[in-house]
Amino acid sequence: MLIDTMEAVLVKNGLITAFVFVGILVWISYEISARLTRGHIHGSAIAIALGLVLAYIGGSMTGGSQGLADFSVLAGVGIMGGAMFRDFAIVATAFGAELEALRKAGVVGAVSVIIGVVLSFVVGAIVAVAFGYTDPVAISTIGAGAATYIVGPVTGTALGADSGVIALSVAAGLTKSVLVMIGTPFVAPKIGLNSPHAALIYGGLMGTTSGVAGGLAATDPKLVPYGAMTATFYTGVGCLLAPSVLFLAVRALY
């Protein structure tokens, strides 16, 4: 009776349950960071990595596509980590951002979005060709997926790709966003990701909003608004370029 009642309470108050769950997860992560790594690996980086591991476990246990949020008790994690709250918190980080830094890096930030989309598309397309794809529609869809997991399906749908190829493009985009979340704090010192200027470029080149959000949170939260600002333009630009100019370029080559 106790367990049933408790489960009912947790399910009924899903978002509140998520606050407790994420609070405990973050606390454990900061303890691991302080005790096991002596603060070398930032607590938020560990929390994000733990979240991804739990999402993998959740996916294997439930067979769903929402990670941990497919457990009914943890459905609130899906709301808390959904696009609505994510975007709300990202916008909030802009409070206190320096307008001057944005103005100075505005042009190079815009350029980096276009370079980022084209670069990821070309790399994804080359990988598709290397794996034996010869159909321009499939090559373009996979290339678009290497941009973000939204650009992939939008492009695939526009070009009439089959659902297997679209699923692959989503997987390429997911791999990218997971890797950006985990990898950014490790490569940040090597690539000079330590100023608003570099963060604007980073957001524009990476483009995955969730990857950039997680990657910068684990690197230096002060850089979040700059990276997030350019990243939010990436998917739109990708959806514009991939099914049009970039697809035509692929078709001209094949």
């Binding site: 994420v22 994000i48 990595a49 733990l50 980590g81 959904g82 994510r86 997971v178 997680g214």
Partner: peptide, 8 residues
């Protein structure tokens, strides 16, 4: 963002 990671 941690919650977002957990629902990927």
């Amino acid at each position: 963002v941690v919650a977002m990671a957990a629902k990927q």
